[in-house]
Amino acid sequence: MTRREAKHLKALYFDLRIKDLKTHYSQTNPKGAYALIQRFLTSHDFSHEQYSGYHSKHKTTDLEIFDLIREMSDTFPWLQHCVSHFEVTNVGANHDLMDLFVSEISEPINL
């Protein structure tokens, strides 16, 4: 009996070394690499959350993520020389905390 891999919403986080981007991507616009990566990931159903963080819009498997990152590496051959950190994690339940921010506080809070 074969088990199917569970699907989860995924979060991707990465860091690039600007010095290496200047060498392997562009001396004059090294940060342009971030826009290319954003375009790639958003075209593959990820939302840009903040900085270098992206969330999948649909549940996916780890294997599908590995294939996506291999495709991204093939699309951007300079990436392997410039990435200093790249991780994937399953996204748990998100809870909107906006209701906790109230416009008026009835009594002062002593800390």
Rank of each mutant, 00 (worst) to 15 (best):
E5D: 10
H81S: 13
T42R: 03
D74I: 13
Y51R: 05
K31Q: 15
H24I: 10
A33H: 01
E64N: 14
E49S: 08
V88E: 12
I109C: 14
S73Q: 12
H8A: 05
H55Q: 03
E71C: 07
S52K: 06
Y13W: 12
N29Q: 10
L97H: 13
H44D: 02
E87R: 15
V91E: 00
K7V: 07
V88A: 12
I37A: 08
T89P: 03
E5V: 08
H58Y: 11
E107K: 14
C82Q: 03
L12H: 03
L97N: 12
D15F: 06
Q50L: 07
T60H: 00
V102W: 00
N110R: 15
H44K: 15
S106N: 14
R70M: 12
I65W: 04
H55T: 05
L63T: 04
H81Y: 13
S43Q: 13
R17I: 13
D99H: 14
H58N: 09
G32K: 04
H48M: 01
I18N: 08
L9A: 03
L21F: 04
S52Q: 03
S73Y: 08
A11I: 12
F40V: 05
K22N: 00
L36C: 06
T61Q: 05
L111K: 13
I37K: 03
A6M: 09
T61W: 00
I109K: 15
F86D: 01
A33K: 01
F14G: 02
F86E: 00
L100D: 08
L100W: 10
E104I: 15
E5H: 01
E49A: 05
N110W: 13
S47H: 07
I69F: 13
F86S: 05
Y25K: 01
L16A: 06
L16Q: 01
A11H: 05
K7F: 02
L12K: 02
D62T: 11
V91H: 01
I37Y: 01
E71Q: 09
L100K: 12
S47K: 01
A33N: 00
S47Q: 06
A6N: 09
S103C: 11
L36I: 06
K57C: 03
K19D: 14
R17M: 10
I105N: 15
V102M: 04
L9I: 07
P77M: 14
A11G: 07
P77F: 12
T89W: 05
K10N: 07
T42I: 11
S106Y: 13
G32Q: 03
S84K: 02
R17G: 10
D74E: 11
S43T: 13
I37R: 01
D45F: 14
N94D: 13
Y13P: 03
